[in-house]
Design a protein around this nucleic acid. Structure first.
Length: 424
RNA sequence: GUGAGCGUAGCUCAGUCGGUUAGAGCGACAGGUUGUGGCCCUGUAGGUCGCGGGUUCGAGUCCCGUCGCUCACCCCA
């Protein structure tokens, strides 16, 4: 048993300041935006039974076949770390919500996929997600897209592209799949090895291939839309019409494909030019999933947090400022330290962020620390102040100092800091 | 799963043709007369040179393997 160096697990990273502050801000704005659309929060477990994902996402999908972290429970039944958020939310709906109710939900948290890490791709990644559980209706789909756009704007993102397409219903999907197989069959030898594999596993993906040779061949096949039933065509046209009325800019992307089996009808993807190869910052669509005996329909989307952060940084978004410390309590001597801690707690009770040294330090060291913390005020207390029952208040910008009776300190601090009530 | 590029201090990096005790800047900590910050000066701590093997009198440096990181393929948010 050789000792192994302790490190974080590949593809799973620590999140610390100042980035953590940016995450907090984005999550807060996400929640606010969702609330304006009347959504409720749901937090589902990170671990589910593996079958939930294989059935809902599709057994042959890449995610289920080779990207899931799964392991047997003591009983032998297999568990899995969730690779995406929708399945768990729908499981919750099937267990806890009446089938007749429309449900509007949002969630956020970590997801796990065993992929090779890359720019904008981690093994633990985080999504902000929304699910509107409701029957197929173009207006519902359009509202979901509107919320998608609002969520990204609220996060501060400007420069994204919304690409929309439809998969049609299950009948359409079958017709497209079969039709494409027929059309592509003669060209099979000319397709790249990946596409020859896709021909069997996931024909639609061939539409997405980046190789010139494959693109040329795909260009000669009819667009998937030609296989759509009249009803499906009319459905997506209505979605587009409502989006136009909302003034939402989007591009119809006839070759846009999604990788999970549950999608039907409207699908979309949001890309960002700053992202590199993994350029989808968000994606969503309408879906139908069978959970046990219940068939659940809805429309939803997920935003990739890590990618959103990258995109924001490419747009030059700044990180939030440093800590919110406003007062530093400096002590000379142990007696004064203890007295300061008590005062610090009183200040904190009033909402004033303040710090005391965690160990014995010279006054000089404490002053340095105070300046570095960004505090505006230092309260100094030593033997002399203890004897006289005073505290020295120093304003760091001006260097002005005055001695105050200890009982007056709270009032004086309030006066100097001005109206409280939290900085943004 | 496949391919390419990179691994030297907390961070950014230097390290000559293979040659002595591996360096700098920033950061951290401490000091610069009594109890006073920023600037400045001085000092201190911090390194299994990713890890293992090989070549060599001698390896941070060359070779092989391995692990990790990064980017791309694949796939997806």
């Amino acid at each position: 048993m050789g000792e192994r160096r302790i490190s974080s697990v590949p593809g799973m990273q620590d999140l610390a300041e100042p980035e953590a502050g940016l995450w907090r801000r984005i999550e807060r704005r996400f929640v606010e935006t969702c609330r304006r659309y009347g959504l409720e929060e749901v937090r589902t477990p990170i671990v589910e039974y593996e079958d939930l994902f294989s059935y809902s996402l599709g057994k042959s999908t890449e995610v289920v076949q080779k990207e899931m972290y799964s392991f047997p429970e003591a009983t032998g039944r297999r568990l899995a770390l969730r690779p995406e958020g929708t399945a768990g939310v729908l499981r919750y709906v099937s267990e806890s919500r009446p089938a007749t109710e429309d449900v509007r939900l949002f969630y956020y948290g970590p997801m796990f996929r065993r992929e090779r890490p890359q720019a904008g791709r981690r093994r633990q990644f985080h999504q902000l997600g929304v699910e509107l559980i409701c029957a197929a209706d173009p207006v519902a789909d359009a509202e979901c897209v509107a919320l998608q756009v609002d969520v990204l704007r609220a996060a501060g993102l400007g420069n994204f592209v919304l690409r929309i397409n439809t998969r049609g219903d299950l009948g359409d999907i079958n017709r497209v799949t079969q039709g494409l197989r027929q059309q592509l069959h003669p060209f099979l030898p000319e397709l790249c090895p990946d596409c020859r594999r896709r021909y069997e596993t996931n024909v639609l993906r061939i539409l997405d291939c980046k190789r010139d040779g494959c693109r040329r061949i795909v260009g000669r096949t009819p667009e998937p839309a030609t296989y759509l039933s009249d009803a499906s065509r009319s459905y997506i046209e209505q979605v587009y019409a409502v989006l136009d009325r909302l003034g939402i800019a989007f591009r119809v992307e006839p070759r846009l494909v999604r990788g999970l089996d549950y999608y039907a009808h409207t699908i979309w993807e949001v890309t960002h030019p700053g992202l590199g190869a993994q350029d989808a910052v968000a994606g969503g669509g309408r879906y139908v999933v069978q959970i046990g005996t219940r068939r659940i329909e809805g429309v939803g989307f997920a935003v990739g947090m890590e990618r959103l952060i990258i995109a924001l940084q490419r747009e030059g978004a700044g990180l939030p400022g440093r800590r919110e410390i406003r007062v530093w309590l400096a002590a000379v001597g142990e007696e004064a330290r203890a007295a300061n801690l008590k005062l610090a707690c009183q200040l904190r009770a009033e909402g004033i962020a303040c710090l005391v040294a965690l160990r014995f330090q010279s006054l000089k060291a404490q002053m340095r620390a105070a300046a570095k913390s960004g505090a505006e005020l230092v309260l100094i207390r030593g033997d002399e102040e203890l004897r006289r029952g005073t505290i020295r208040l120093r304003e760091l910008d001006s260097g002005r100092e005055r001695d105050l009776p200890a009982g007056r300190v709270l009032e004086a601090v309030r006066g100097v800091l001005g109206p409280l009530g939290g900085r943004a």
